[in-house]
């Protein structure tokens, strides 16, 4: 077990934003977090990365409670991609990605190899020498993804690895969405667990192992996409009428509006 939340509540501003969340994640699993705006998806991510603490319940990461993790060791095991980035100093793309190696002391040769690999995995190799501040929104998102990939890339860096992504594909075109999700899948196959907030049901169906559906800070559904993607769930939680059929080529559900 990589992480487990047991009847977790969180109240970062005094009022409960998350109620009674129960979830277990194994190494190598990708968990999709879905829900309407304001459902508590980002609050859950903040809880998982230790930015906000529990008001009730228990959170084990690895074999220890989350709050017992020293900050540096936690950074070696977890990487977080926030929704927005506020970087406005003229770093080159390579420098930004290299910042992902800050918590590790693996030496510059290995760091350079990791940077090279994650630039390939995010199709940012050609941007390497460009200034971050002069990139487009989608390019910036890919560079930030490369940075968090670099932080949890190597199996040797930490016994537990967790990647938390808040809407990582929101600014990406279709082919880059596919590339990034493919890279996330490959990373997961190497033993890194991934929690990813997405709004695209079909992307979730295609790439996640488990989905957690939140509504008003409560856990409404949890399970494989095949199990929980039902027209009733979409009507009750998202207030949309959809048809759920079977993907013509793969054994996954296909959500049609």
């Amino acid at each position: 077990m990589l992480l487990s939340l047991n009847s977790a509540y969180a109240a970062p501003w005094g009022q409960d934003l998350l109620h009674d969340i129960n979830l277990q994640l194994e190494p190598g699993q990708i968990l999709g977090v879905l829900g309407p705006n304001g459902a508590g998806k980002t609050s859950l991510l903040n809880l998982l990365c230790g930015s906000t603490s529990l008001s009730r319940g228990a959170y084990l990461f690895g074999d220890r409670p989350m709050y017992e993790w020293p900050i540096l060791q936690r950074a070696r095991a977890q990487a977080v991609l926030p929704q927005h980035s506020s970087l406005n100093f003229p770093y080159t793309v390579e420098e930004v990605v290299l910042l992902g190696r800050t918590p590790h002391d693996s030496g510059s040769a290995i760091d350079a190899q990791v940077v090279n690999a994650v630039l390939d995995a995010t199709d940012t190799q050609s941007l390497r020498e460009r200034l971050y501040t002069q990139l487009s929104g989608g390019e910036k998102q890919r560079v930030q993804l490369a940075r968090v990939f670099a932080q949890v890339w190597r199996t040797q860096d930490a016994a537990q690895r967790l990647l938390l992504l808040d809407e990582p594909t929101s600014a990406l075109d279709l082919s880059h969405q596919k590339l990034i999700m493919h890279s996330v899948r490959t990373l997961a196959d190497q033993g890194c667990a991934v929690v990813i907030i997405v709004h695209d049901f079909n992307l979730a169906a295609r790439y996640t192992d488990l989905c957690l559906v939140l509504q008003d800070g409560r856990q409404r559904a949890m399970g494989t996409p095949t199990k929980i993607f039902t027209p009733d769930m979409f009507r009750e939680v998202f207030a949309v009428d959809v048809t759920v059929s079977k993907h013509p080529k793969l054994d996954i559900p296909l959500v049609i509006q």
Binding site: I71, L72, R74, A75, P82, S86, F89, Y91, G100, T102
Partner: peptide, 20 residues
């Protein structure tokens, strides 16, 4: 210097990179 480099990304980002 390394902490300042990480801080340019933002405070919470720096924290996630292991900076106190």
């Amino acid at each position: 210097a390394p902490a300042l480099n990480a801080l340019l990304l933002g405070e919470s980002e720096a924290r996630h990179l292991g900076i106190d």
